[in-house]
Protein backbone atom coordinates (compact mmCIF):
# COMPACT_ATOMS: atom_id res chain seq x y z
CA UNK A 1 0.00 0.00 0.00
CA UNK A 2 1.38 3.37 -1.02
CA UNK A 3 0.39 6.76 0.33
CA UNK A 4 -1.86 7.35 -2.67
CA UNK A 5 -3.57 4.00 -2.10
CA UNK A 6 -4.05 4.96 1.54
CA UNK A 7 -5.58 8.26 0.40
CA UNK A 8 -7.94 6.40 -1.96
CA UNK A 9 -8.93 4.01 0.82
CA UNK A 10 -9.67 6.89 3.20
CA UNK A 11 -11.68 8.71 0.51
CA UNK A 12 -13.83 5.60 -0.02
CA UNK A 13 -14.10 4.73 3.64
CA UNK A 14 -14.96 8.22 4.87
CA UNK A 15 -16.90 9.35 1.80
CA UNK A 16 -14.55 12.23 0.98
CA UNK A 17 -13.15 13.46 -2.31
CA UNK A 18 -9.62 12.27 -2.99
CA UNK A 19 -8.37 15.85 -2.69
CA UNK A 20 -9.84 16.22 0.79
CA UNK A 21 -8.61 12.80 1.88
CA UNK A 22 -5.14 13.74 0.66
CA UNK A 23 -5.14 16.87 2.85
CA UNK A 24 -6.10 14.79 5.88
CA UNK A 25 -3.50 12.07 5.28
CA UNK A 26 -0.76 14.65 4.65
CA UNK A 27 -1.81 16.55 7.76
CA UNK A 28 -1.42 13.40 9.88
CA UNK A 29 2.06 12.52 8.62
CA UNK A 30 3.19 16.17 8.72
CA UNK A 31 2.09 16.43 12.35
CA UNK A 32 3.98 13.22 13.16
CA UNK A 33 7.12 14.40 11.36
CA UNK A 34 6.99 17.72 13.19
CA UNK A 35 6.63 16.00 16.57
CA UNK A 36 9.68 13.85 15.85
CA UNK A 37 11.51 16.95 14.68
CA UNK A 38 10.84 18.54 18.08
CA UNK A 39 12.36 15.41 19.60
CA UNK A 40 8.96 14.26 20.82
CA UNK A 41 7.90 10.63 20.77
CA UNK A 42 4.57 9.54 19.27
CA UNK A 43 2.35 6.90 20.77
CA UNK A 44 -0.55 5.41 18.83
CA UNK A 45 -2.37 2.83 20.90
CA UNK A 46 -2.93 -0.43 19.08
CA UNK A 47 -0.42 0.56 16.42
CA UNK A 48 2.94 1.42 17.91
CA UNK A 49 5.22 4.19 19.04
CA UNK A 50 7.92 6.30 17.45
CA UNK A 51 10.90 7.64 19.32
CA UNK A 52 13.90 9.78 18.44
CA UNK A 53 17.30 8.69 19.69
CA UNK A 54 20.21 11.11 19.79
CA UNK A 55 23.72 9.88 19.02
CA UNK A 56 26.98 11.56 19.98
CA UNK A 57 29.59 12.09 17.31
CA UNK A 58 32.07 9.25 17.08
CA UNK A 59 35.15 8.24 15.14
CA UNK A 60 34.32 5.49 12.74
CA UNK A 61 35.84 3.91 9.69
CA UNK A 62 34.78 3.58 6.14
CA UNK A 63 34.26 -0.19 6.10
CA UNK A 64 35.40 -0.43 2.48
CA UNK A 65 38.60 1.59 2.64
CA UNK A 66 39.41 1.39 6.34
CA UNK A 67 39.88 5.14 6.35
CA UNK A 68 39.07 6.94 9.62
CA UNK A 69 36.04 9.23 9.45
CA UNK A 70 34.26 11.35 12.03
CA UNK A 71 30.58 10.51 12.20
CA UNK A 72 28.75 13.67 13.31
CA UNK A 73 26.12 13.74 16.06
CA UNK A 74 22.75 12.73 14.69
CA UNK A 75 19.23 11.82 15.63
CA UNK A 76 17.47 8.76 14.26
CA UNK A 77 13.80 7.79 14.41
CA UNK A 78 12.72 4.39 15.67
CA UNK A 79 9.41 2.55 15.59
CA UNK A 80 8.30 -0.02 18.11
CA UNK A 81 5.33 -2.06 16.98
CA UNK A 82 2.39 -2.21 19.39
CA UNK A 83 1.25 -5.49 20.87
CA UNK A 84 -2.02 -5.67 18.95
CA UNK A 85 -0.41 -4.92 15.59
CA UNK A 86 2.47 -7.27 16.30
CA UNK A 87 -0.01 -10.09 16.74
CA UNK A 88 -2.04 -9.12 13.66
CA UNK A 89 1.11 -9.12 11.54
CA UNK A 90 2.26 -12.50 12.74
CA UNK A 91 -1.22 -13.93 12.17
CA UNK A 92 -0.99 -12.81 8.55
CA UNK A 93 1.91 -15.24 8.15
CA UNK A 94 -0.06 -18.03 9.79
CA UNK A 95 -3.02 -17.35 7.48
CA UNK A 96 -0.76 -17.32 4.41
CA UNK A 97 0.79 -20.62 5.45
CA UNK A 98 -2.64 -22.13 5.98
CA UNK A 99 -3.76 -20.89 2.55
CA UNK A 100 -0.76 -22.55 0.95
CA UNK A 101 -1.39 -25.79 2.80
CA UNK A 102 -5.06 -25.89 1.74
CA UNK A 103 -4.19 -25.02 -1.84
CA UNK A 104 -1.52 -27.71 -1.81
CA UNK A 105 -4.04 -30.28 -0.59
CA UNK A 106 -6.33 -29.28 -3.45
CA UNK A 107 -3.51 -30.20 -5.82
CA UNK A 108 -2.75 -26.67 -6.91
CA UNK A 109 0.64 -25.03 -6.93
CA UNK A 110 -0.17 -21.41 -6.26
CA UNK A 111 2.45 -18.72 -6.36
CA UNK A 112 2.14 -16.82 -3.12
CA UNK A 113 3.97 -13.53 -3.11
CA UNK A 114 3.25 -11.58 0.04
CA UNK A 115 5.41 -8.72 -1.16
CA UNK A 116 7.49 -8.67 1.99
CA UNK A 117 11.25 -8.32 2.13
CA UNK A 118 12.87 -11.56 3.13
CA UNK A 119 16.41 -10.34 3.16
CA UNK A 120 17.15 -10.96 6.80
Amino acid sequence: MTKSELIEAIAARSDLTKARAELVVNCVFDAMLEALQRGEGIEIRGFGSFTVRPYKPYDGRNPRTGQAVTVPAKRLPFFKVGKELKELVNESRVRAAEFERLAGEAGDHPVVDDGSDDDE
Partner: peptide, 20 residues
Amino acid sequence: IFETMKEALARGEKIKISGF
Protein backbone atom coordinates in the same frame (compact mmCIF):
# COMPACT_ATOMS: atom_id res chain seq x y z
CA ILE B 1 -6.10 6.08 8.70
CA PHE B 2 -4.51 3.87 11.34
CA GLU B 3 -7.17 1.18 10.90
CA THR B 4 -6.62 1.12 7.13
CA MET B 5 -2.89 0.77 7.66
CA LYS B 6 -3.37 -1.98 10.22
CA GLU B 7 -5.66 -3.88 7.88
CA ALA B 8 -3.12 -3.70 5.06
CA LEU B 9 -0.35 -4.97 7.35
CA ALA B 10 -2.65 -7.72 8.64
CA ARG B 11 -3.11 -8.83 5.00
CA GLY B 12 0.66 -9.13 4.78
CA GLU B 13 1.05 -5.96 2.70
CA LYS B 14 3.82 -3.47 3.29
CA ILE B 15 3.10 0.26 3.42
CA LYS B 16 5.11 2.99 1.73
CA ILE B 17 4.47 6.55 2.87
CA SER B 18 6.64 8.81 0.75
CA GLY B 19 8.30 11.52 2.81
CA PHE B 20 7.85 9.55 6.01
